[in-house]
Simulated assay, not measured.
Amino acid sequence: MKVFLLEDDPETAAFIERGLTERGHVVEVEADGSVALRRLAERDFDVLVLDRMVPGVDGLAVLKAIRAQGRTTPVLLLTAMSQIADRVDGLEEGADDYLVKPFAFVELAARVAALGRRPPTGEFDAVLRVADIEMNLLRREVRRGGRSVDLQPREFTLLEQLMRNPGRIVTRTMLLEKVWNFGFDPKTNIVETHMSRLRSKLNEGFERSAIRTVRGSGYMMNDDA
């Protein structure tokens, strides 16, 4: 597996590179975020490990840039910023996982391996359809009634989870796990806030809501929207 590591501390970078290489991965290391962006534009990787606080463009800005380009490469944010708000910020911008320094290498290696095992988008059905909503996973496009709906990366993933479960209730806990990779409830209104934005975008110009709230349980797609 090809892993790209953005880490400006030489000892930490060497430690991670050596450990992942010993596990059979091919690792490329960069210490500057600006240079990292150029390298990521030139080559594809299976997993990205990004430190947030690096020279040039910080790791979060690198993440935002590649997600804005529509790239879905799994990203693990590795940082000393340990507050829940920091983690939420990173995950909202499109990170797939988040590991706080100091860390145990075995955990980092396990998380990288887990991200690398995720099947590429092409192994899924390329297009999901529920009622008048169509989602193209390869092009990262959503349409309702033939009209394009512009979604942010986290909103796209949120809708994807709902569309993969047509006619079934998707709980708040399930969404926290699948969309934000939270194995716990961070006690924020992150789901509700994103759901409100998603609904607003999907429902604009339509009388019937695309998503229904099941009080006390979760959310589900209206398959006759």
Results as ranks from 00 to 15, higher is better:
residue 184 F to N: 00
residue 57 V to C: 11
residue 2 K to D: 14
residue 51 D to I: 07
residue 114 A to D: 05
residue 62 V to P: 11
residue 60 L to N: 06
residue 216 G to D: 05
residue 30 E to L: 08
residue 23 R to I: 09
residue 85 A to T: 14
residue 74 P to Y: 07
residue 65 A to P: 04
residue 224 D to T: 15
residue 218 G to P: 10
residue 60 L to C: 03
residue 186 P to D: 07
residue 52 R to M: 14
residue 174 M to L: 09
residue 59 G to C: 07
residue 209 S to T: 08
residue 71 R to W: 09
residue 93 E to W: 07
residue 13 A to N: 04
residue 209 S to K: 14
residue 45 F to R: 03
residue 36 A to I: 10
residue 46 D to R: 15
residue 157 T to Y: 00
residue 217 S to L: 13
residue 197 R to H: 12
residue 127 V to P: 02
residue 154 R to E: 07
residue 24 G to M: 02
residue 53 M to N: 12
residue 138 L to P: 05
residue 74 P to H: 08
residue 83 Q to T: 11
residue 186 P to C: 09
residue 113 A to P: 02
residue 55 P to K: 03
residue 21 T to P: 00
residue 149 V to T: 01
residue 198 L to D: 05
residue 85 A to E: 15
residue 44 D to I: 03
residue 46 D to K: 12
residue 78 L to D: 12
residue 62 V to G: 03
residue 146 G to L: 07
residue 220 M to C: 12
residue 78 L to C: 10
residue 39 R to N: 07
residue 162 L to C: 10
residue 191 V to L: 07
residue 222 N to C: 06
residue 75 V to S: 04
residue 124 F to E: 12
residue 67 R to G: 04
residue 10 P to E: 06
residue 115 L to C: 12
residue 42 E to G: 00
residue 98 Y to Q: 07
residue 142 V to W: 12
residue 146 G to S: 06
residue 91 L to C: 11
residue 169 I to D: 10
residue 198 L to S: 05
residue 90 G to T: 06
residue 178 K to T: 09
residue 99 L to A: 02
residue 97 D to Q: 08
residue 117 R to Y: 05
residue 85 A to K: 13
residue 97 D to G: 09
residue 56 G to W: 11
residue 198 L to V: 09
residue 147 R to K: 15
residue 6 L to D: 05
residue 12 T to N: 08
residue 192 E to M: 06
residue 62 V to K: 11
residue 219 Y to P: 01
residue 142 V to C: 11
residue 217 S to C: 02
residue 106 V to I: 06
residue 101 K to V: 13
residue 173 T to F: 01
residue 3 V to N: 03
residue 45 F to Q: 01
residue 64 K to M: 09
residue 23 R to D: 15
residue 2 K to Q: 15
residue 68 A to R: 14
residue 147 R to V: 15
residue 60 L to Q: 11
residue 52 R to T: 05
residue 37 L to P: 03
residue 136 N to S: 13
residue 106 V to L: 06
residue 127 V to S: 03
residue 14 A to F: 10
residue 145 G to C: 10
residue 224 D to M: 07
residue 9 D to W: 14
residue 203 N to H: 10
residue 41 A to Y: 00
residue 89 D to V: 02
residue 133 I to C: 01
residue 147 R to C: 05
residue 172 R to N: 10
residue 65 A to T: 15
residue 148 S to E: 09
residue 138 L to Q: 14
residue 45 F to C: 03
residue 184 F to D: 04
residue 198 L to P: 07
residue 113 A to K: 14
residue 193 T to P: 01
residue 61 A to Y: 01
